[in-house]
C-alpha cells in the first residue's frame, strides 16, 4: 500500500506552518520589543494543526480503523496532540514561551514523518486492531505528549531556577513564566500523563489477557514493551505520590519529570527499532 499524495501534501503544509510558528515565537524571544502581531504564531499553529488533523483522518480512512501502529503514525499523532495541548494553554494565557519548544518538536516530528513516508512509501495494510488496542494506542500517545509537555515545563523550571540563583537577567529570563506557574503545569501534565499511561496499560493488559490468556505478552518484543512501560509507570507513579507527600516540589519534581519522559521516549524508540514498522507489541 502506498502513502496518499494528498496526505503527504497535508503533512508538508502542516510542517511548514509549524516551522512558521516556531520562527515567530523565536523572534518574540530574540526581539527586545513586544511584537505588534501577537496572534501570528498562534494562527500559524492553528493552521498547522488543521492540516495535520486532515492528514490523520485520511490515514484513519485509508486503514479503516484507528491507525497508530507504526512509528510514523504514532509520531504524527504525538506532534498533533502536543500542538493541540499547547493551543489550549495559549488560550488560557499560561505559558507563551512553551510555543518555542512545542513548535520545534512538532516541526521536527512532522519532518520525520514526511521523511519516513518518502523513503519507505510502501507499507503493509494492517488488519483492524480492535477497540481495546485502539484505545491503548491513543492513550499511550496522549501519555507521551503529556510527558513531553511536562519535560519541557520542567526544563524551563530548572532554567529559571538557574537564572534566579545565578542572578542572570536576560531577555529569555523575562519571557519565562513564574516558577509557581511552571511547577503547577508540571504537576498537571505529570498527573495527566500518569492517568493516560495507566489506563493505556490497563487496556493493553486486558487485550493481552483476552488474546493470549495472560496479561504479560509472550513475545520478546511484548515483554520488552511491558518492561519499558512498567519503568515509565513507576517513574510517574513516584512523581505523583511524592508530590502528594509534599516533599517533592519544584526542582526535585522537575528532575523526576525529566527522567520520566526520557525513560518513556527511550522505551518508545527501543520498541520502534525492534518493531520494523508494525505495532511494537504485536
Amino acid at each position: 500500500m502506498k502513502i496518499s499524495p494528498l496526505e503527504l501534501l497535508l503533512l508538508e503544509m502542516a510542517s511548514g506552518f509549524y516551522l512558521g510558528a516556531f520562527v515567530l515565537y523565536l523572534l518574540e524571544v530574540l526581539l527586545p520589543r513586544p511584537t505588534r502581531v501577537p496572534w501570528a504564531p498562534v494562527t500559524a499553529g492553528v493552521g498547522g494543526v488543521l492540516f495535520q488533523s486532515l492528514a490523520i483522518f485520511i490515514r484513519f480512512g485509508f486503514q479503516g480503523h484507528v491507525a497508530l501502529l507504526s512509528l510514523r503514525e504514532a509520531l504524527s499523532f504525538f506532534s498533533w496532540s502536543l500542538v493541540l495541548a499547547f493551543l489550549y494553554l495559549e488560550h488560557q494565557k499560561k505559558a507563551r514561551i512553551l510555543g518555542l519548544f512545542i513548535f520545534a518538536i512538532a516541526f521536527l516530528s512532522t519532518l520525520m514523518v514526511i521523511g519516513i513516508s518518502v523513503h519507505s512509501p510502501l507499507f503493509a495494510a494492517t488488519a483492524p486492531i480492535g477497540f481495546l488496542l485502539s484505545l491503548h494506542t491513543i492513550l499511550i500517545d496522549l501519555g507521551l505528549a503529556s510527558a513531553a509537555l511536562s519535560f519541557i515545563v520542567a526544563l524551563l523550571y530548572l532554567l529559571l531556577d538557574f537564572f534566579l540563583r545565578r542572578k542572570i537577567f536576560n531577555r529569555f529570563f523575562s519571557r519565562i513564566p513564574s516558577l509557581e506557574t511552571l511547577d503547577q503545569l508540571n504537576t498537571n501534565f505529570s498527573g495527566l500523563g500518569f492517568v493516560f499511561l495507566t489506563t493505556g496499560l490497563i487496556f493493553a493488559m486486558i487485550w493481552s489477557w483476552e488474546k493470549f490468556g495472560t496479561t504479560i505478552p509472550h513475545a520478546s518484543q511484548g515483554r520488552l514493551a511491558f518492561l519499558g512501560a512498567f519503568l515509565v509507570w513507576i517513574a510517574y507513579a513516584a512523581t505523583v505520590l511524592l508530590r502528594w507527600s509534599r516533599r517533592f516540589r519544584g526542582k526535585q519534581a522537575a528532575y523526576l519529570s525529566i527522567s520520566g519522559f526520557l525513560i518513556f521516549a527511550a522505551t518508545i524508540v527501543a520498541l520502534a527499532l525492534f518493531s520494523k514498522g508494525s505495532h511494537f507489541i504485536l
Binding site: 529559571l160 534566579l164 529570563f173 523575562s174 519565562i176 513564574s178 516558577l179 509557581e180 506557574t181
Partner: peptide, 19 residues
C-alpha cells in the same frame, strides 16, 4: 517594563517566583 528602583526590582523578582 524594567524596574530601576531597588524596592520595585525586588517586587518584580517576586513575580518571577510566584504566580
Amino acid at each position: 517594563h524594567l524596574p530601576v528602583s531597588i524596592s520595585y526590582a525586588a517586587c518584580q523578582l517576586a513575580r518571577k517566583i510566584f504566580q
